[in-house]
Design a protein around this nucleic acid. Structure first.
Lengths: 337, 337
DNA sequence: CTGAAAGCGCTTACAG
DNA sequence: CTGAAAGCGCTTACAG
């Protein structure tokens, strides 16, 4: 092996400063009192050599990795941008790296990459959990926090999530009470997605509270996807189903809905009210501007990372963190400025 | 230090299998011939102990980190999603982790986190380069690839970018030739952004080729930002500037443009043609659907990562990779289906 | 306040 | 085909 990058090591610094490596280490880590002259000598030596500690070596010695992992299905959706953004900002500030693991729910085969030895902890954001994987990790007490989904029975993992049901309910209430809608389509999220489940409960509750019977015909799959939602709503229209409003389980599917309605020449909001969920960045720029429920996505990312850091530092963390959501009225429901 | 996670080590495996640690290591890395019975014994021991190698230790021994870094200003824009997606997919497939560094152009202070010891290489995607930082990294031959920006004078770093000028030119040509536009506003990207620079050149070339004088008044700042673009175009309208088309330097700013036009009651595309650049996921869902230039963003991410991997493995890489762009006609320019 | 030494868990010449 | 041993660059009891 040719040694091309001859970066200075702590040993070089020690030699130059005329002290032991232990002393240099202590200076770097500020974890022991040092004589003023020693400090100066060490600093001078470090400057002269342009030394920076070898992170991998440090990690091996301290048995940490300085990596936080986030496991997610995919990073295709607009939703992930603010989430990642929040995570990156706090991990970075705390001197950690963020590793992203995507793709099929990570099987046990790459547990190695997820677990200790490669990460100090994990943030898990999946539609449905790889239970086995989670269990193995939980068993060895690998720090984890769950995002917008609860832990499988018997395992205790802190979770951060949002007021899905209350948000959905407020939105559907609004559709009924203010705009007099009664035939409200609900476009579900992906199978097994917990958020969608709660949003549907909010939808049903709002209906029940206004004595509107739940109608199976009015429910279809949106899968948090524009194209799926587009196709789904088109099919619904072609089937001749009558409706006067659509509650898309997220903004992404709402975009597909708007498109489908446009293609069918149904006026929004005059003939059909449309509402989404999430309040993604583009919601105020759609035509018409989208009424939706604001989800504090970036904050979720930040909190998840902060909680994970707490866990790693053996500090207490709330088992459930429920962030508030808020109805944001724009034009697509029928409200005017 | 309480030792809570007592993960098995290679030594445990060796003991159980009745071989030396060297043999186990060789088995894991498939880098030496091993007797069949030995293989079986080792595998059995690994299975029994549920062993997985400690990545940090391996990295220290091999002097690699298995980390690829990507340095970017921020991950707020929609543009970053497919870029990251592409990067993650190839890094993951090759057993590397992707570290994201965002924020102010990384000063030399955290060179440590970027350089060797923490990453095996870097993908750099910034509006303007921290030259010092790049130089120091280049000096120690830290593998790097630049995305959509050229290396500072005197440094050779492979770059992957797109046909900005040709794309812009095709688009503006279309506006002039097909839709008869002559007063075309150009909404610039951020200061120092190289893509925007090339797109502006394409714009100017198209004008020149049709004997349309370049008019300073028709150029304003869009900064690849919806809100900035919105404000910018509003100001332009209030100033009474006459125009019949807008070329927004990216789709994001085009969204702001559409909004501004809507608020000013100017019909798109009847009165004003609007075109963007990038062909982000939402382009076909805007109202009207957005004519734009397709940039193969995910492919850029993939290629950047692949090239970086090649560099790391001392394989040759093209100094410049120029990916084609393509005009995508939709409604906002005036074309119909 | 400081140093000598062991150790973190691997890999890899070197020797056989 | 296999092993003993040195080494990767740090940290951290232990001792003084």
């Amino acid at each position: 092996m040719t040694k091309e990058k001859n970066s200075p090591t702590i040993r070089d610094v020690a030699r130059l400063a005329g002290v032991s490596v232990a002393t240099v280490s202590r200076y770097i880590n500020h974890n022991a009192p040092l004589a003023e002259t020693t400090r100066q000598n060490v600093q001078a030596a470090m400057d002269e050599l342009n030394f920076s500690p070898h992170l991998t070596a440090r990690n091996l010695a301290t048995n940490r990795t300085n990596n936080l992992g986030v496991v997610m299905q995919n990073i295709g959706g607009d939703f992930f941008t603010p989430l990642l953004d929040g995570m990156v900002s706090v991990t970075q500030k705390n001197g950690y790296n963020l590793l992203i693991f995507t793709g099929d729910p990570p099987g046990t085969q790459n547990l190695n990459r997820l677990g200790p030895g490669n990460t100090d902890g994990l943030m898990v954001f999946l539609d449905s959990l790889e239970e086995d994987c989670l269990r193995s990790l939980a068993q060895i007490h690998h720090p984890m926090v769950l995002i917008q989904q609860s832990a499988p029975a018997g395992i205790e993992i802190p979770m951060v999530t949002i007021e899905n049901k209350a948000g959905a309910r407020a939105e559907v209430d609004h559709l009924i009470e203010v705009h007099g809608r009664r035939r409200i389509v609900f476009l579900r999220g992906p199978q097994g997605n917990e958020d969608s489940h709660w949003r549907e409960l909010g939808y049903r509750e709002a209906l029940a509270n206004h004595d509107i019977a739940f109608d199976e015909q009015l429910v279809a799959d949106g899968e948090y996807d524009r194209y799926v939602a587009l196709a789904s709503l088109k099919a619904l229209i072609q089937r001749g189903v009558q409706f006067d409003a659509v509650f898309a389980a997220d903004d992404d599917s709402a975009i597909g809905v708007l498109q489908a309605l446009r293609e069918a020449d149904l006026k929004v909001p005059e003939q059909v009210s449309v509402v989404g969920f999430d309040d993604q960045r583009l919601a105020p720029f759609l035509a018409p501007t989208l009424t939706t429920v604001h989800a504090p996505t970036m904050q979720i990312g930040m909190l998840a990372a902060e909680h994970l850091l707490h866990l790693i530092h053996k500090e207490p963390v709330a088992p459930i963190t429920l962030l508030p959501t808020e109805l944001v009225l724009r034009h697509s429901c029928g409200c005017s400025e």
